[in-house]
Design a protein around this nucleic acid. Structure first.
Length: 588
RNA sequence: GCGUCCAUAGCUCAGCUGGAUAGAGCAACGGCCUUCUAAGCCGUAGGUCGCACGUUCGAGUCGUGCUGGACGCGCCA
């Protein structure tokens, strides 16, 4: 679509330039950079609108008069794109010639199929993308689901825009919080295992973290035991390491099961237990170079007052690492492993300050690429009752939520009594649950806080993933019926001049803009542009096919033409679905 | 106290580089299944775009101030 806009815009620029010459106005006075190509508010106005306010000054004339003059000249221009151009007040509205554009759009989708939307916006750019980053002391919760959903989707959008993407996860497998669940297991575990208890392994570990919290409430002094365990861990105590390995494996295995269930994949895993020492070395090097400074108690600090921030500790007085220390190490080892042109961290907004500091520190250590690091900050996920609080047990567990969604989908399917169409209830309800979840989590702008209402997310009416799946299943159904009765239409021929319904044209224009939209979503790291696009396309189609039969037409040419349109819509939906994690369903 | 972000219909959210009467979905009310899946379609109602100034021919959109909210400012992660 953008190409058509640009072409029309150039024609108008030429006309205005000529008009200015006649009036002896110099070209410098014309503010073409302000000439916008917009969408008219109503379809009857045409397809592209140009407000002419910016030229009022140089022409010393009213915008409506200028518009009328330009429209007059535009009418004389012969262009295969333009059907007509009219002045409406201060605007020039251009109506495009439909048939050629329809054919061109339909042909490019036919050629590219589900690859449609692929663009060269970021061609060849190496982008490392970090997301999820679970702790190994408890299972994933709703907050992780937003993170995972966003990371996975942004990765796909970047790839579709030509980038080379490496998705990495950082397993937070080290620290005092890990020792807490280990301690509780030592005390209460009785050598049970996830297998012996028949429990998903990360939930099993999580239970001991909860048990620890209860325990500490009664006996606050046990925190000392946890601290000692961390020291033992750092010094490599065999027993502690063994228990750590065992429980880590349980936690990670369980998390990976959730990844698989939700369609999350990584190219590479990093473990904090393997990178935190490198961070410490880097900080010490920085100290030698005089970038950082040491306080009397031996702790090492960075002074960020020059950047309007405060001082920040990088290494404890006892020499042990902090969160920031490990992130420094991780970042550096990554740039060595896979030299990237961009590094994106998908992490909640509560860590905005952390990343500001991290990038500054990396820059101070002399790493040029620090300026190419970006914190994709996303808002908190709250519940209708308020904030999720682990202490109050209001944290929504990821696996539980998914199970709840699937359960609801099963009930919905059964209540419809359409088991002929929806044979495999399990697969379909799984797909619906995932579609509902991903669509809900991605349809808000990333940086905004969202309220996750479990009740609403599993409602399948309106602006939801299941609605999109339903619409695409309907298209599939029509195409299936067409294939079955193909013989009846063998005399029909595709004829773009038959695409006269407004919705048909709106659909074509929408589809034409999809590659640009994907590129923009890649620029903004914003999947909600894609979800909004999909909803608009699905809604347009739903309205269209409700009023306009595809197969039930006397005119076989019309049937063939509309089938061609449907064959262009479906791959675009599928393509968009892939980008935002909505499973496509042939039937539902 | 300081910093970052947010504020649009009863609720959840869109609103592209400022441009023609501010848009969806849900909830409410009223229609539409002998017709390609009613998880659908159509219609009605609902808004001083938090408040006040300012910039501009033009502000939901940009700037300043204020109010309200979220998050952060740990030798936690």
């Amino acid at each position: 679509m953008e190409q058509y806009r640009q072409e029309c815009r150039n024609i108008i620029i030429n006309i205005i330039t000529d008009m200015a010459k006649e009036k002896g106005i110099s070209e410098k006075e014309l503010s073409f950079d302000q000439l916008a190509a917009e969408n008219p508010p109503k379809p009857e106005y045409g397809d592209i609108a140009f407000p002419l306010f910016p030229f009022a000054k140089s022409f010393k004339d009213a915008p409506p008069k200028i518009a009328a003059a330009v429209a007059g000249k535009l009418a004389e221009v012969k262009n295969p794109l333009i059907e007509k151009a009219q002045a409406a007040g201060p605007y020039i509205n251009v109506t495009l010639l439909r048939a050629a554009i329809c054919t061109s759009v339909i042909e490019s989708v036919e050629k590219e199929q589900e690859r449609y939307g692929t663009n060269n916006h970021l061609r060849g750019t190496k982008i490392m993308l970090e997301f999820s980053c679970p702790n190994t002391n408890k299972p994933l919760h709703l907050g992780h689901l937003r993170n995972d959903s966003l990371g996975e989707s942004v990765g796909k959008i970047l790839k579709k825009s030509g980038a080379e993407v490496l998705k990495v996860d950082l397993i937070n497998d080290r620290g005092i919080h890990i020792c807490k669940s280990m301690l509780a297991y030592q005390k209460f575990g009785n050598n049970t295992t996830p297998e012996s208890e028949g429990m998903k392994s990360d939930h099993f570990v999580g239970n001991y973290y909860v048990k620890y919290a209860e325990w500490e409430k009664k006996e606050p002094e046990i925190i000392e035991q946890a601290r000692k365990m961390l020291i033992d861990w750092e010094s490599g105590d065999e027993q502690v390491r063994l228990l750590w390995k065992t429980m880590n494996k349980w936690a990670i295995d369980g998390v990976k099961q959730t990844y698989e269930a939700t369609g999350i994949e990584f190219d590479k895993y990093y473990f904090e237990s393997e990178t935190y020492e490198l961070g410490r070395d880097e900080v010490l090097k920085g100290l030698e170079k005089g970038v950082f400074f040491k306080k009397d108690d031996g702790s090492i600090w960075v002074d960020l007052k020059a950047y309007d921030l405060d001082e920040k500790v990088l290494l404890r007085s006892d020499g042990t690492s902090l969160y920031l220390t490990q992130d420094i190490g991780t970042a550096i080892s990554r740039s060595k492993d896979w030299p990237f042109e961009r590094m994106i961290y998908v992490v909640a907004s509560e860590q905005n300050y952390h990343f500001k500091v991290l990038f500054l520190v990396l820059g101070m250590l002399g790493y040029e690429w620090a300026k190419n690091c970006y914190h994709l900050s996303y808002g908190m996920v709250n519940l209708p009752e308020g904030k999720m609080k682990s202490r109050e047990g209001t944290v929504v567990d990821a696996d539980d939520l998914l199970a709840e969604l699937i359960d609801y989908a099963v009930k919905e399917i059964e209540s419809r009594e359409r088991d002929d169409d929806a044979q495999d209830i399990k697969t379909i309800s799984n797909a619906i649950a995932l579609g509902a979840l991903n669509y809900y989590l991605l349809s808000a702008s990333p940086h905004k806080d969202i309220i996750f209402d479990p009740e609403k997310s599993i409602s399948f009416n309106g602006d939801t993933g299941p609605y999109l799946q339903y619409t695409s299943a309907r298209i599939s159904s029509i195409l299936r019926k067409y294939e079955e009765r193909k013989d009846q239409y063998q005399n029909g021929k595709y004829d773009p001049s038959l695409l006269t319904v407004q919705e048909e044209w709106d659909i074509i224009k929408l589809i034409a803009g999809f590659p640009d939209l994907v590129a923009k979503a890649a620029d903004e790291y914003n999947p909600s542009l894609v979800t909004a696009f999909l909803f608009e396309l699905a809604k347009l189609f739903a309205k269209y096919y409700h009023d306009n039969p595809v197969l039930k037409n006397e005119d076989q040419n019309l049937v063939m033409t509309r089938i061609a349109l449907l064959k262009a819509i479906l791959p675009v939906l599928k393509s968009g679905f892939q980008l935002v994690g909505i499973p496509f369903l042939e039937r539902m």
